Simulated assay, not measured.
Amino acid sequence: MTFNFKDALGVHADALQVRADRTKVLAANIANESTPGYTARDIDFAAALQQHVDSESGAGGAELSLGDGDPLYRVPYHPSVDGNTVEIGVEQAAFSQNASDFQTSLTFVNMQLRGLAKAINGQ
């Protein structure tokens, strides 16, 4: 009998992948805080997760690629003179919230894997 971990873990494994991709985008924003003309980007988590789930159910594994879709650009609250739209406070808050959400999804995956281990061991 074969066992599919993807089915057992549900959407949480996909959520971890999308959160990791969003972490990369937010980290790039923070790293380019002082780059003139840099435009801050972000990922719409719900839309990206739906795209990730749909692409995996239809065409096999797929990775979120910002080049294929339209990346979302942040509209700054206070535009800078040099054209940079990164606002460090906003980016740090988004990064922190994303890290917390990542940890939550990771906790769910951990709980599901522990449950599977108990079932395998007959506990």
Rank of each mutant, 00 (worst) to 15 (best):
Q97K: 14
N29Q: 07
H78D: 05
A31W: 11
V75P: 05
P79Y: 04
M111Y: 10
L113A: 10
S65Y: 04
N29C: 05
A20F: 06
D42A: 07
L106Q: 15
E33C: 04
G89P: 06
G67L: 08
A47P: 07
P36R: 07
K6V: 06
I88H: 05
I43H: 01
F102Y: 15
A99C: 09
A119H: 02
I30E: 00
V11A: 05
M111F: 12
L16H: 10
A28S: 13
A99R: 09
D14N: 07
N84S: 06
A117F: 12
A99N: 13
T104E: 11
S34L: 00
Q97Y: 06
G37M: 00
S100I: 10
T2M: 02
K6F: 03
E33K: 05
D54V: 10
V81T: 09
F5M: 15
S80I: 01
P71L: 05
N110Y: 02
D54M: 08
A47L: 09
A15L: 00
N32G: 08
A47Q: 15
L72Q: 08
S105P: 05
A28P: 03
T23I: 06
V18G: 03
N4V: 10
A94T: 09
I88Y: 09
P76E: 00
L49K: 04
F108A: 07
A31H: 05
A94Y: 01
M1N: 13
A94M: 10
D70K: 11
L49Y: 01
A27D: 04
G83I: 02
H52G: 03
Q50E: 15
A20P: 02
F45V: 04
L113V: 13
G122K: 04
A59Q: 12
R22F: 03
E56W: 10
P76A: 02
M1L: 12
A94S: 15
I88W: 08
N29F: 03
R74L: 15
A59S: 13
V11S: 04
E63C: 01
H52S: 08
S55Q: 12
L9E: 02
H78Q: 10
H12F: 14
K6P: 00
L106N: 14
L49G: 01
Y73I: 06
K118N: 15
D44K: 00
P36N: 02
L64A: 09
D82N: 08
N4Y: 08
A31Y: 11
M111K: 07
L16A: 06
L113H: 01
F5C: 11
E63Y: 11
K24Q: 11
V81M: 06
S57E: 14
L16P: 07
E56A: 13
I120D: 01
A117C: 01
H52P: 00
Q103E: 14
R19P: 02
M1F: 09
S105I: 00
F108H: 02
A46K: 14
R41I: 05
H52T: 10
T23F: 13
G69N: 13
N110W: 03
I30W: 03
E63I: 12
T107G: 14
G83H: 00
F3M: 11
A20N: 15
A47F: 05
N32S: 11
F5H: 08
L66S: 04
F45M: 08
G89R: 13
V109P: 09
G67D: 13
A31V: 12
R41D: 00
L49Q: 00
